[in-house]
């Protein structure tokens, strides 16, 4: 009896862990524009969850709903349910700052503040807790290392972040997000403005980070999805066409639209 109880507990715990973020019947509109239609899906823990689809299909809107960064957008209407760790995100009086500390976000184009590299890394975490100088130094080092940037900038931490290349700036943004210690990383086409070498650096980084973080990546670059995704979600014109593990979707998609998109890059939805 006791073992049965334990097994059930294990199963339910597993379930929570596997469906770290669980979205059901999500509808998002801006005014009369219906962007996301009845999306239901689950994102897996410690995986690179990759949302693909043509531009304007609602990928970013989906991502931006998860940490509710679009909360202040004018005439946004959002319905449905997003569960994070079995807690509803879409309730009205949700503590958004707490939510965003747990669900960090990296944006499309790198956006560093006109401050030094060090101050940029500390920017978020400094506002959440008082830190001693030693703590600050170790946080800076730890997160720059995590973002594979430490070796390039360790000698010039006090220089302006604007002096870095665009690829380095994007990794600095990742370090800044990691410093807040989120559980989930939302990445909105983080490599779309970068050169191939920086793109590769960030892809390697994502592969490494998924051991510790759950990554939800939006990309319109199918070959990138093929390289690094674990789970694939194909969204087109606001609808989830198909989802599943990358290997299944690339080898044997169930829907014709998925096949057309993944192999020809065109969309016939």
């Amino acid at each position: 009896m006791e073992t049965a109880q334990k097994i059930i507990e294990n199963i339910s715990e597993n379930k929570i862990h596997q469906h770290y973020i669980s979205i059901s019947n999500l509808n998002v509109s801006f005014g009369s524009q219906h962007i996301l239609k009845n999306i239901s899906l689950n994102f897996q823990k410690n995986k690179v969850n990759c949302i693909v689809g043509p531009s304007g299909g609602g990928k970013s809107t989906l991502l931006r709903s998860i940490n509710r960064i679009n909360n202040d957008d004018y005439n946004l209407i959002i319905n449905g349910s997003i569960l994070f760790n079995n807690e509803e995100i879409l309730i009205k009086n949700k503590d958004l700052t707490k939510l965003r500390k747990e669900i960090g976000m990296v944006f499309q184009s790198p956006c560093v503040f006109p401050k030094s590299i060090k101050e940029n890394v500390l920017f978020g975490i400094e506002n959440h807790s008082k830190l001693s100088q030693a703590e600050k130094d170790s946080i800076v080092e730890e997160n720059l290392k995590a973002a594979s940037l430490w070796d390039e900038v360790s000698t010039r931490l006090n220089e302006s972040a604007k002096s870095l290349s665009i690829g380095q700036q994007q990794r600095l943004c990742i370090a800044r997000t990691l410093a807040v210690k989120p559980k989930i990383l939302l990445m909105d086409e983080p490599t779309s403005s970068l050169d191939p070498i920086s793109t590769e650096a960030i892809e390697v980084l994502m592969n490494r980070l998924k051991a510790e973080y759950t990554i939800i990546l939006v990309t319109h670059n199918i070959s990138q999805a093929k390289r690094i995704a674990d789970e694939l979600y194909f969204i087109c014109e606001g609808e989830l066409i198909e989802s599943g593990s990358k290997d299944v979707l690339f080898s044997n998609p169930k829907k014709e639209q998925t096949r057309t998109y993944l192999f020809n890059g065109t969309c016939n939805c």
Partner: peptide, 13 residues
């Protein structure tokens, strides 16, 4: 630019 506000909000400020 709007992105500075979003980054700041996204970091939990």
């Amino acid at each position: 630019p709007k992105k500075y506000r979003e980054v700041s909000k996204g970091l939990g400020l």
